Structure formats: structure tokens, C-alpha cells
Computed example of a mutant assay.
Amino acid sequence: MQSFLSDIGLALLVALGMAWKTGWTLVLGFSISSILQAIVSTKSVSERLGKGTAKELAFATAAGAASSSCSYASAAIMRTLYKKGAALTNALAFLFASTNLVIELGIILFLLLGWQFMAAEWIGGILLIAIMSVVVKLTYPQKLAEKARQHEETEGGHQHSAEPLSGDTWRQRLKDPEAPVRISQNFLMEWSMLWKDLMIGFLIGGFLSVFIPDSFWQAIFFSNTSEWIKLPLNAIIGPLIAIVTFVCSIGNVPLAAVLFASGASFGGVLSFIYADLIILPLLDAYRRYFGWKMAAYIGAVLFATMVIAGIVMDVIFTTLGLVPSEAPDIQRELTSFAVDYTFWLNLIFALPAGWMVWTGIHNKSQHHHHG
């Protein structure tokens, strides 16, 4: 009994470690989404990202890489971009880039899994966007996509005001006296929609890392089979496991380390990491944002893209002899707290987060539309 209680304590500590590692990125991502919703006009987004050209795709990728967001926050930004006129390929490119090409994710991969995974994540992020753009262009459902763009979100607690802030440019709209209140209300709504999903995800990740033995993962990932069979199966199994583990962007790296240490292939672990965008809470968020048919389409496109990218990256790194041979002690990494960059970033970002929550609650009665 004492051992069981000790394991529960360890699982909770691992979950807390996941939340601690991702805290500041969530604040940053939700803040970017809130600002975009308040100041970006439909016309400007349509002109910059509305055609789906290669130049626009590159711009969306660069913007996503600069956003440093967790997958939940990135999905919120993607929804904002798409509903304000961005082409689907550009919106999804932003989504991939903001969860696979960001600096903090690379740092955590380097610290927990080694430089090979960091390099594969960044190179694979570019590959994901290239594959996705081809898949979407070949399968694009025009009527469904336009209907999804107009889909009303009725389950998020309340709708954002459709009235734009005053000003012809984003700088002028940002100077509107109403801007801080609008941004804070948007920020509060994002948290109100997704905080339960985040909490469940961290708890599942923590308990899986403690209570599931290595032998189980070895069986799931066919560790003792031929590499030619293991390669495609692991790339498919990785995203399937990610779907039901609920753990978002940076938060799924610790579990990825557990999987790699337990016998999952390099490509299978990569496809698992890529698949933070199709976990069940996010698929449900896509449903709320766009309707269930469009959510199913987006989920299918993302899944196919992740599987293909995982296989390709595994082949490349195996051919070059770059697949790491040892895995780290992930539980020790997540249960060791220190005054490091994560501590200072969480401390810094807690200040604007607290201010926006307080402002949003204080001015809640001023919100224009309530569900």
C-alpha cells in the first residue's frame, strides 16, 4: 500500500513537472491568439495568407516558428487565422510550425532526448508542412472548408465580439482604449475553454510514465520484430497513442522519452511527438471551432502527414547513423526542480497572465455576446 501511494505521489510530481515545463509557453501562445483576435482585420489576413501560395506558406511557417506556442494555444491561433481569411494550408502550416519549429521545444528535446531528436524535430517540421500542403491541395473540400470558416462556436462559454476595434491599421487598433480589455477577455476565454484538457493531459502523462511497465510499450511497438515491419507500424502507432494520452506539445516530450527508452523506434517517437496536434481534446477543439466534418478532415490530413514524416525521418537518420542508442531517465528530469530558465520564464509570464485574468474577470460584464 505504501509503495502504491508512493507511486501515485511520483506520478503527480511528474504531472506537475510537465505543467511547470509548459507553463510560460501556454501564456505566450494564448496571449498571441488573444491579440490576433482583437487587432487583426479579416482583410489584412486574407491579403497576406488568403491565397495559399508558396510565399504565403513560408510566411505562415516563419510566423508559427516565432510564436513559441503549445499545441492548445497554437490551435486557437490557427482558428483565428483561418476564420479571418487565411488559406487552410497557411493556417495548418502555422499550426505545425508553432509546435514543431519553436526554440523551447528544441531545447527540451536536446536536454531530454539528445541533439538528434532536436534536429529531427526541426527538419521534420519543415517536412510536415511540405507534405501537408500537397495532401491538402489534392483533397481540398471547397464547400466544407468555407462552411467551416463561418462555423459559430457555441460551446466555448461565450462568443467574442464581432465588432472591430477602432483604427485602420493594427497599430491603431492596438492603441484603442478598449484593446487591453478585449485582449484580456479573449485570453480568459481561451483558458476557460482548455484548462480542463490541459490538467487531464498532464495527469495522464504522469500516471502513464509511472504505472505502465516497459514490457507493455515494447509489445505495443513490436520491439522484437523486423525493422522493415517495425518502421511503418511504429509511425502509425505513435500518433494513435498520442491521440489518447491527451498530452500537448512540450508536455509530450517526457512521455516520448519513456517510449524511446521502452523500445519504440526513432520514427515512432517522432510521429508521437508530431501528433500532439491530434490528441482527443484538440480534435474536440477543432470540432467546436469548425464543426465535426471539418474536424475529421483536419484530423485525417494531420494523421497522414505525421505518419509519412515519421517514416521518412527514421529512414534518413538511420541511413546516416544518427539514431541515438541510449535514452535518459525522464522521471528524474521532471522531478528535479531548479532555478533555471524555466523558473524565470514562468515567473516573468505569470505577471501578464495574472493581469489579463484579473482584467478579463473585472470587465466580464462588458463583453458583447454571452453564450
Rank of each mutant, 00 (worst) to 15 (best):
Gln2Ala: 14
Leu5Phe: 15
Ile8Gln: 04
Leu10Ile: 11
Ala11Leu: 03
Ala19Leu: 13
Ala19Asp: 04
Thr22Gly: 14
Thr22Asp: 15
Thr25Val: 14
Gly29Leu: 05
Ser33Lys: 08
Ser34Arg: 12
Thr42Gln: 15
Val45Arg: 09
Thr53Asp: 07
Leu57Phe: 10
Phe59Ala: 06
Gly64Met: 10
Gly64Thr: 09
Ser71Ala: 14
Ala76Asp: 10
Ala76Arg: 05
Thr80Cys: 15
Thr80Asp: 10
Gly85Ser: 05
Ala91Thr: 13
Ser98Gly: 10
Thr99Ser: 13
Asn100Pro: 01
Leu105Trp: 09
Gly114Glu: 03
Phe117Pro: 00
Ile131Pro: 04
Met132Tyr: 06
Val134Gln: 01
Val135Pro: 00
Leu138Met: 10
Leu138Ala: 12
Tyr140Leu: 11
Lys143Pro: 05
Leu144Lys: 12
Glu146Leu: 15
Glu146Ile: 11
His158Ile: 12
Glu163Phe: 02
Thr169Gln: 02
Glu178Asn: 10
Arg182Ile: 12
Ile200Asn: 11
Gly205Trp: 04
Phe211Pro: 00
Asp214Lys: 04
Trp228Leu: 12
Gly238Phe: 08
Ile243Glu: 01
Val244Arg: 07
Val247Leu: 14
Val247Cys: 12
Leu255Ala: 08
Val258Ala: 08
Ala261Cys: 03
Ala261Arg: 07
Phe266Lys: 08
Gly268His: 04
Val269Leu: 06
Val269His: 05
Asp276Met: 08
Ile278Cys: 07
Ile279Leu: 12
Leu282His: 03
Arg287Phe: 00
Gly291Gln: 07
Ala296Ser: 12
Gly299Asp: 07
Val301His: 03
Val301Leu: 15
Phe303Tyr: 15
Ala304Tyr: 00
Ala304Cys: 15
Ala304Thr: 14
Gly310Cys: 10
Met313Ile: 06
Phe317Gln: 03
Thr319Val: 03
Pro328Gln: 04
Ile330Ala: 04
Ala338Val: 08
Ala338Met: 10
Trp355Cys: 10
Gln366Phe: 13
Gln366Ala: 15
His367Arg: 13
His369Ser: 04
Gly371Ala: 13
